[in-house]
């Protein structure tokens, strides 16, 4: 399986995302924001960072990039797309996901290991999790507070489209503790925390067993690969 990672001006986590894809067992394909070509990939990751310096709004200018035409078409045709952090912001700005993200309520950039509960294990990126699994992966952002209208929130909750919720306290003021959502089809997922930073023992969050041994993030990537193998 070939999974593309799009690099935008100001992307930071594109290489970590590519590494996570390789560790999960797929080929990582580097894609460029200025192209109109997805190079035949089977899935896409929009990585974290500060594309265009977060000018205008986080993810807003990147969502208008040339390659986003192809990304939006592919997503609408069912290609699995995972947006992490800045990538999540791009997906909301591109209207592929509902809601929007504003500054953290305490006004601080947050960088820490964060507990999450995976509430939707039917999306293309979460099928490898048991329902309501609790995981720990890094959270690092300044504008991670998820906002949506009451009506949208009701739809997200009612249709089970909350992929991940913060546990152990709400870090940023996100409505309903929302850390990640999916679209109705379940192929597009946006996450504020960073699964790609928790994929290899020695470099992940601390666990009860050993320092830096947490690899809870890997399951997002192995899920989408497993889904492709069964030809869903």
């Amino acid at each position: 399986m070939r999974i593309g990672v799009v690099t935008f001006p100001g992307s930071l986590d594109d290489r970590d995302a590519a590494r996570a894809i390789r560790l999960a067992g797929a080929d990582a394909v580097a894609l460029w924001h200025g192209d109109h070509d997805l190079h035949g990939v089977d899935a896409l990751v929009l990585p974290g960072g500060f594309s265009y310096g977060d000018y205008l709004r986080a993810g807003a200018i990147a969502s208008l990039s040339p390659i986003m035409t192809e990304v939006i078409d592919a997503a609408n045709q069912g290609m699995p797309v995972l947006g992490i952090c800045n990538g999540f912001q791009m997906l909301t700005e591109a209207h592929l996901l509902d809601g929007g993200l504003i500054r953290n309520d305490k006004g601080r950039f947050i960088c820490r290991d964060q507990g999450l509960r995976i509430e939707n294990n039917a999306s293309d990126w979460t099928t490898g999790f048991e329902a309501n699994t609790e995981i720990v992966i890094p959270l690092k952002n300044g504008e991670g507070s998820f906002m949506a209208s009451a009506e949208t929130l009701k739809a997200l909750e009612g249709e089970g489209r909350i992929v991940a919720r913060y546990i152990g306290g709400n870090p940023n003021g996100s409505l309903n503790d929302i850390a990640g959502v999916t679209n109705a089809r379940g192929n597009v997922v946006g996450l504020m925390p960073h699964p790609e930073h928790a994929v290899e023992a020695g470099f992940g969050p601390d666990t009860d067993d050993a320092m830096a041994s947490g690899i809870d993030g890997l399951t997002f990537f192995t899920s989408v690969i497993a889904r492709a193998l069964v030809g869903a």
Binding site: R57, A60, T92, E93, G100, L101, I102, S149
Partner: peptide, 9 residues
């Protein structure tokens, strides 16, 4: 459509 995001602004 571009200068504002109606979800938050």
């Amino acid at each position: 459509t571009v200068l504002s995001n109606s979800v938050i602004e």
